[in-house]
Amino acid sequence: MLDLQERQAAATAAAASPAIHSVDLAKHYGKTVALANLTMTVPRGEVFGFLGPNGAGKTTAVKLLVGLIPATSGEGWMLGKPLGDRQVRRRIGYLPELFRYQPWLTAPEVLRVHCELARLPRSSWKTEIEGAMTLVGLAGRERDRVGTYSKGMQQRLGLGVALLGSPDLVFLDEPTSALDPVGRHDVRQILHHLRERGCAVFLNSHLLTEVEMVCDRVAMVDHGRVIASGTLDDLLGGKSCRIRVTGLDPRQRGSLRAFGDLDDDGEWITVRGLEPERVPEVVDEIVRQGGRVYAVEPRHLSLEDRFLQLLGEGEKNS
């Protein structure tokens, strides 16, 4: 009886646990730091964007979390189990950045192999395979060998493989790198569908506009270190406004710092951290100093702006 209660308590605790939680997870290759002290939490049912430039450590992080490589230090849990737990891998899906599937098989055969390896009930294989082929837009190409597929089609197949068995957590490493705009749109739709189903998604990408469209929460990584993380609102909370101005000397342009941080490229001035209601005050001040205003573009800081800003700060500090 006690055993049953303990098991129920463990099941409840596992269900309440985040999709991913890591503490100081690190990976070193000799003296090279591929990933340093990754501490983060990915709640269940959210789409989590993991951003960074090429070589920042994104793929290393995914491989560590999936359990493909061991961590040098730190620890982590996935769906309530320690990283590397084999059983929890029944409930995850993974699309590698280097996606490659047996070219001598057809797509349904590849999916069948993964149904076997994922230990899905045999009775569900047919439905799973047909569903995956339709979901990723490969219906009608069942008889063709994967070796004859374009790169984009192989990436679609990889997505289908990752989504077999309705996993609770899916890792997608650059899932749109080989896709055309239609394919990217399809992937976004799939991500929305996964979120509605309560599936957590760990999305590795350097395509910031895409991440901005689909992610609830992001972490930015550079040189193996997380340089910022939080919800999109947290990261992009600062407002900004672009104004096209002439007729002000450098000192006068500099005086606008009173309203916020400035980026001045000579034609456009961007005032960061400016609440929308203060935009008329800035325009008034420019006109008062004799400047001429040709355009005013109040806008949110884009993820790309914020990303470049953070990378710039990182370089200054290093």
Binding site: G67, L68, R90, Y94, L98, R100, L117
Partner: peptide, 14 residues
């Protein structure tokens, strides 16, 4: 080298 093992080893296999 091709990456073919990545998706297979992410399954519950040793």
């Amino acid at each position: 080298e091709s990456g073919l093992v990545l998706s297979m080893l992410s399954r519950p296999v040793r």
